[in-house]
Design a protein around this nucleic acid. Structure first.
Lengths: 115, 115
DNA sequence: AACCATGCTACAAATAATGTAGCATGGTGT
DNA sequence: ACACCATGCTACATTATTTGTAGCATGGTT
């Protein structure tokens, strides 16, 4: 799976539009999860593995390389952490946390009323 | 692939936390793309296929079912469209459009300066 | 030197996505 | 009624991705 560089061809678009590269990237298994879990602070490889609960080391490493190439994360002596751009991205998606709770509630309410 | 219901077990979490179900869902191939493309208005199955450029009908149908079950989209006579909750979700992620352009620019600048 | 922990690779098995063909249904025109 | 289309969607073989497990290599401790 080639890294979805903005400007190049990505899954779902030959136009090279940055948003398409981004959606391709974020749509890969665990990419969003890694970003989400890194927000709680830098983590070593094994620590990150635990935060993700079930990710295989093979895939974790693959995603880390992609995210590093695309400058969303960086590795320091403290381990892996969000880059400034990664933080920006996280700030955009962070409302998903609260939103998902309301959404879950709505789904439950609906399954109760519509027997 | 079972539908990631909040409250149930999903990829990456046994806790049932809604955010984990959501990240699982959005991390599936094409899920974000479908939501993104539906924002420009309702679309029939074939129209949506074209907007996505390269999605296979098999997968499109699979994702549509998931998104419908989780109430992010609904199908009317006009075709598929975002549900009110889907619109909410889109509103959260819509800044990704502009963000991705800056990001693409930063990546290009960096590849120029750091030969 | 034996012992750990860590980052990460190898690789086979399991699962998911793609691509293409085409069926079933519901119009429209004749 | 009948041929002709478009649409929504399924079938299914091929290909790509993900998982799970084992374990290697490096660096620090005792």
């Amino acid at each position: 799976m080639t890294i979805p560089l903005p400007g190049g061809q990505v899954r779902g678009s030959k136009t090279g539009k940055p948003i398409m590269a981004l959606l391709d990237l974020l749509g890969r298994t665990w990419a969003l999860g890694i970003i989400w879990h890194l927000h709680s602070g830098p983590a070593t490889f094994r620590e990150l593995q635990q935060r993700c609960e079930k990710i295989s080391p093979t895939l974790l490493n693959t995603r880390l390389k992609e995210l590093k190439t695309l400058q969303l994360i960086e590795s320091q002596q403290a381990g892996y952490q969000l880059s400034p751009q990664g933080v920006d991205l996280f700030d955009i998606i962070s409302p998903l946390g609260n939103w998902s709770s309301q959404w879950a509630q709505a789904l439950m309410d609906e399954s109760k009323s519509c027997h």
